[in-house]
Write a protein that binds this DNA or RNA. Structure first.
Lengths: 117, 117
DNA sequence: TAAACATATGAACATATGTGCATATATTTA
DNA sequence: TAAATATATGCACATATGTTCATATGTTTA
């Protein structure tokens, strides 16, 4: 015998209702892609570095022990999802965090890290 | 001729300094894994559904057009990263969002979605 | 205009990941 | 204890992803 009352499954109607409250396939897909882009040490490092201010590819190359093409590929991924933006300055391509959303996300990560001792 | 002053690359010292401000490899790895878990329509749907309250596997199965084993696999992934937790209630395994961090994350997604019209 | 520099891209390969199927485990009910 | 129910797991396969190498593009300087 158990103290806990047994769980009562919701009927199909309530479940259908629940389903309506979640984002559409399209929206989920987009969210997915964004998280996918963040599932990469390289791209996370880039975002953390850029969160301090704009940097060109050369600087990122100096900071990260990763080849230039690999960095460019990562930047493209981040660019395509509008997580970073480029501005051409002379011969350099200066990348920066796209907007406050992304800044918030990075801050969130920092907090998460610091809270886990 | 251009109005913009050309970008000036930071020297290696400043770059080394920048590097110190980003999370350690270990922490990055953990963040990576979390985002990795979120890069899945199935797992995102599960999280959105659970954000309304605890649900057992059976209910998730009724809501999602996905096989029971696939759902269990997804739940395991989420469990291992402590994004969801289980509580056994009789013969049911009731899953719920692990903590406020995760709730915040899901809310963030909802906001993101609603702000992009 | 040639050379040097900064960045981007494409193809290819190795590895990671998700899903289905079969099946194992655990709990409850008869 | 047998049968039914609820969930978990292992394996295998198809697909997705990241990285490297070679090379293309674009910009500046000599």
């Amino acid at each position: 015998m158990t103290d806990d009352p047994e769980h009562v499954c919701a009927d199909q109607e309530s479940i259908s209702l629940l389903l309506q409250s979640i984002p559409s396939e399209d929206e989920l897909c987009r969210i997915c892609d964004i998280f996918g882009a963040l599932q990469s040490e390289t791209r996370l490092k880039i975002l953390f570095l850029l969160s301090g201010g704009g940097l060109c590819v050369k600087e990122l190359e100096g900071a990260l022990d990763i080849s230039q093409p690999a960095i460019s590929h990562s930047l493209r991924t981040l660019r395509q999802l509008d997580l970073v933006r480029v501005k051409k300055e002379g011969r350099f391509a200066v990348y920066h965090i796209a907007d406050e959303h992304v800044h918030t996300l990075i801050d969130m990560c920092r907090k998460h890290v610091s809270e886990h001792e």
